[in-house]
């Protein structure tokens, strides 16, 4: 199921048609691939290349630049503990150690049951709630070691299911709008407005 099929293919094609240049859809399509498979598979990279007119090397080159895109399977929950300056000043590293103990894996690894992947992350813009934690990019904070253990428990019991979808699902709100106005139509509209603009400028000069 690594290539897009059925409804996912429809979403993928819609994404690619949204932009003046389909290549702009590469990152959104990689997110879509993660929504489908939890990570960006090689087949998905090749398929994305076909959809946007790029080579596999180019799609991979772009995708591998970004930390959120994974190329190996990760846990159902990717837990990021921020250790950047503001969190560090409020115990970020201590929390990371505690998290590592709680989960039994060092940062960068996935628990044996495949549920949790622990990561050390850079500032996630949640500094007033330092030390901050993100679980599948949903934010929590401030978190201490007890609170972390509690969070893990809640994730396991399904208590947080509504707030935290499985890894890969990023935006649960789909674009609900007519297809973008064709650029040619906007160009014509632009030309009209520019002419008006110039007329106004001219009349001011008179």
């Amino acid at each position: 199921m690594a290539r897009f099929e059925g409804e996912m293919l429809g979403r993928a094609e819609r994404l690619a048609s949204l932009y003046p240049d389909p290549r702009s859809a590469i990152i959104p399509l990689c997110h879509l691939a993660q929504e489908q498979d939890g990570y960006v598979t090689e087949e998905a990279i090749a398929h994305i290349g076909e959809l946007v007119g790029a080579t596999g090397a180019e799609v991979q080159g772009t995708a591998s630049f970004y930390d959120m895109l994974k190329f190996e399977p990760v846990g159902k929950y990717v837990i990021g503990v921020c250790t950047n300056i503001s969190c560090m000043l409020r115990g970020g590293y201590e929390l990371l150690d505690a998290a590592s103990n709680t989960l039994g894996v060092p940062p960068g690894e996935t628990t044996a049951d495949g549920i949790f992947t622990l990561e050390e992350v850079e500032c996630v813009a949640h500094c007033d709630k330092a030390p901050a934690v993100q679980i599948n990019y949903r934010y929590f904070g401030p978190v201490d070691s007890d609170a972390f253990a509690e969070l893990v428990g809640q994730l396991k019991s399904g208590e947080l299911d509504e707030q935290v979808p499985e890894h890969g699902t990023l935006i649960r709100v789909l674009r609900d709008a007519p297809p973008p106005i064709p650029l040619e139509e906007i160009d014509a509209e632009r030309a009209r407005q520019d002419a008006e603009r110039e007329a106004r400028a001219a009349s001011r000069e008179v």
Binding site: A54, T55, A57, E58, Q60, G61, S64, F65, Y66
Partner: peptide
């Protein structure tokens, strides 16, 4: 015109 070689990572 054959982008078969590209940078990877950051």
């Amino acid at each position: 015109g054959e982008a078969l070689l590209d940078f990877r990572g950051r």
